[in-house]
Each structure stands twice: as structure tokens, then as C-alpha cells.
Amino acid sequence: MDTSEDHKGEPEVGVLFRNGNLTVFGIVLSFSLGFLNTWASNPNEWALTDLPTLVLISTGIIFQARALWRLLRPNSLKKTVFEAGNRLFALGLLLTAVGVIMSIVIDLTRLMIY
């Protein structure tokens, strides 16, 4: 959303509630980044089959970071901005989770083949 949008008269969420979400978003984002770091430094050789996993995890992390940034802005106390940030974070979390599950399935498949 543009920072110049007018949100006068719009209901607001509680500061404590928003701060709780900020904490959760930050923790989950750090775990996602940590997983990507661990996965990238895995001693297994990379293959073209790892590309969809990398795209999913990276895109999910970008969405999570964007949602965190959105909730750090002053207008995030407005209900529509807050809810949009939550939806963005949920999408990022879903993409990251699918990427993590896909990486596990690919690794297990490689173990069974070799």
C-alpha cells in the first residue's frame, strides 16, 4: 500500500496485538533464513531438481520479509494494512513450508535411488 493513502476513520488493531505479530514474524523469518542457509550449505551436490525448491523457499522468505516490513510501518495499526500484512506473511509461510517439504522429499528420493 502507498504510504500516502488516507486511513482516517478506519478501525485500528491494538498495539500489543500488532507487536505480538511482529515478534512471531521476526522469529519465523529467522528460522526460514536459517533453514535456507543450512540447506544451501548441505554437502549434497546441487541439481536442476533443486531449483523449484530454491524458488519456493526464496519467494516465501521475500513475502515474509515484506510482511514484516509492512507491520513495522506506522500505518500498520490500521486494520486493513494489518490484515494485508498477515495475509502476505501467511502466503510466504505456505510457500516456504512447501519448499522445505519438497527439499526433504527430493533428498529422500535421492537416498532411495542411490
Rank of each mutant, 00 (worst) to 15 (best):
M1H: 11
M1R: 08
M1P: 07
M1G: 09
M1T: 09
E5D: 15
E5W: 05
D6W: 06
D6H: 09
D6T: 08
D6R: 07
H7E: 01
G9S: 08
G9W: 02
V13H: 05
V13C: 12
V13W: 04
V13L: 11
V15H: 14
V15Q: 11
L16S: 14
L16D: 05
R18M: 14
R18V: 14
R18N: 05
N19M: 11
N19F: 06
N19Q: 15
N19H: 07
N21S: 15
L22R: 13
L22E: 09
V24L: 14
V24T: 15
F25N: 01
G26E: 05
V28Q: 06
V28P: 02
V28E: 04
L29R: 01
S30D: 04
F31R: 04
F31V: 12
F31L: 10
S32T: 07
L33W: 00
L33P: 00
G34M: 12
G34A: 11
G34L: 05
L36P: 02
N37R: 07
N37I: 10
T38H: 13
A40W: 04
A40S: 08
S41D: 09
N42D: 15
N42R: 08
N42P: 01
N42E: 09
P43E: 15
N44L: 07
N44W: 03
N44M: 00
N44E: 07
E45A: 12
L48H: 03
L48F: 05
L48W: 01
T49D: 07
D50W: 01
L51C: 06
L51R: 01
P52N: 03
L56P: 01
L56A: 07
L56W: 06
I57N: 02
I57P: 00
S58Q: 10
T59A: 13
G60N: 08
G60K: 02
I61E: 02
I62H: 08
I62G: 12
I62R: 04
F63W: 14
F63L: 15
Q64E: 12
Q64S: 02
R66C: 03
R66T: 15
R66K: 12
L68G: 04
W69L: 11
R70V: 00
L72A: 08
L72K: 07
R73A: 02
R73F: 01
P74S: 11
P74N: 06
N75W: 02
S76L: 10
K78M: 09
K78T: 00
T80C: 03
T80G: 02
T80L: 02
T80I: 08
V81F: 04
V81K: 01
F82E: 09
N86M: 04
N86C: 10
R87C: 01
L88E: 03
L88M: 11
A90W: 05
L95I: 06
L95W: 03
L95M: 14
V98W: 06
G99P: 11
V100S: 01
I101P: 07
I101N: 11
M102H: 09
M102R: 02
V105G: 13
I106Q: 10
I106Y: 09
I106H: 13
D107N: 10
D107S: 13
D107A: 13
D107P: 00
L108M: 13
L108H: 10
L108K: 12
L108E: 13
T109S: 14
T109I: 08
T109D: 12
M112F: 13
